[in-house]
C-alpha cells in the first residue's frame, strides 16, 4: 500500500500546475499505484482568509465517493488571521480534516509567534498533526512576486533550524516536516530533542540523497512516502524508497515507508 503524505490541489499563482485537481491527482495515483493522498489546498497559502481554501477543498472532495475514499484533507490555518479558532473547529468537525498545514513565511509570522504556539498546543490537544515545510518552490526560480528567502543570500531558505523552535516550544505535539530540502543539522541538545519528538518527514525533499544513512541516523519510523505533488514530479519521492537496497531497508522497512509509518502516525 502507498500513502502520499504530501500532496496538494489548487493553484500556484506564478506558474501553471498540472494534475492540481482531485480528479487529475487521482489519475496520477492510479497510474503510479498510490492508494491514499493527504492533500491540502494551495490556494490557502495565498488567500488571506485561508478558510475559503479549506471550504473549496471540502466541496471538491465531497463531490465524489472516490475522493472521499482516497483523499485525507488537511486544513490550512493562519494563526495570525481573524477567526482561525472557529475555522479550525469547522475544518475538523464539519469538513473532516485530519491535520493542519501552516506557512509561517507566506503568512508572515515568526516560528515562535505566540499565536502559532497557541495553534500548535490546540492541535496537540485535538490530537491533530501540524505540518511545516522547508519551502514550496526553489527560491532560485522564484517569481518576483514570491517571498524573498533566497538560497545563498543573506536571507536564505529555511533549514531545520528555522522550524525547530516550535518543536522545542511544544515538544509533545505531533509534527510533519515536509519537503526537506536543506540542512537537517541541529546542535547536539536540539538534535536530541528533535529525535525524541513525534515527527514524520516525507521523501520529497531535494536534499534527501542518501536515504539509507538517514534511516540509520533518524530511525526508520520517521520517514514516509511523499511527493510534494503537483509542484514536484510524482515519482522521485517514491524512487527514494524503492531504490533502497535490502541492506539499507528490508521489505518490512520499505512497507513502513510506503504506508506503515503514515498509518500509524495519522491513526488511519
Amino acid at each position: 500500500m502507498l500513502i502520499d503524505i504530501n500532496a496538494y490541489v489548487g493553484h500556484w499563482p506564478f506558474m501553471q500546475l498540472k494534475y492540481n485537481t482531485c480528479e487529475a491527482l487521482g489519475q496520477r495515483m492510479d497510474r503510479f499505484g498510490v492508494d491514499v493522498s493527504l492533500i491540502s489546498n494551495l490556494n490557502g497559502i495565498f488567500y488571506k482568509n485561508t478558510q475559503s481554501a479549506n471550504k473549496e477543498l471540502y466541496e471538491e472532495i465531497k463531490a465524489s465517493k472516490r475522493y472521499r475514499d482516497r483523499f485525507v484533507p488537511f486544513a490550512v490555518i493562519n494563526p495570525i488571521y481573524a477567526g482561525w479558532q472557529y475555522d479550525l473547529e469547522e475544518c475538523v468537525r464539519k469538513f473532516g480534516m485530519k491535520g493542519i498545514r501552516v506557512y509561517p513565511k507566506y503568512h508572515d509570522y515568526e516560528i515562535n509567534d505566540p499565536s502559532l504556539i497557541e495553534l500548535v498546543k490546540k492541535a496537540r490537544d485535538m490530537n491533530l498533526p501540524v505540518a511545516f515545510n522547508y519551502k514550496m518552490v526553489d527560491s532560485r526560480q522564484r517569481s518576483w512576486m514570491d517571498i524573498d528567502y533566497v538560497a545563498y543570500t543573506p536571507r536564505p531558505e529555511w533549514t531545520l533550524k528555522n522550524i525547530f523552535p516550535i518543536i522545542k516550544e511544544v515538544p509533545d505535539a505531533r509534527y510533519m516536516i515536509l519537503n526537506v530540502t536543506n540542512s537537517m543539522q541541529l546542535n547536539e541538545a536540539d538534535a536530541a530533542l528533535f529525535n525524541k519528538a513525534n515527527v514524520l518527514m516525507d521523501t520529497s525533499g531535494r536534499t534527501l540523497t542518501d536515504m539509507g544513512s538517514l534511516l540509520k541516523t533518524q530511525g526508520k519510523e520517521r520517514f514516509a512516502f511523499g511527493t510534494h505533488s503537483p509542484i514536484l514530479d510524482y515519482l522521485t519521492g517514491m524512487l527514494r524508497i524503492e531504490a533502497l537496497r535490502e541492506n539499507e531497508a528490508d521489505a518490512a522497512t520499505k512497507e513502513l515507508l510506503r504506508s506503515g509509518n503514515a498509518k500509524k502516525f495519522l491513526g488511519l
Partner: peptide, 9 residues
C-alpha cells in the same frame, strides 16, 4: 474578511 471573521461571535 478579517473584520467580518473577527465579529462572528
Amino acid at each position: 474578511e478579517y473584520a467580518c471573521k473577527s465579529f462572528r461571535g
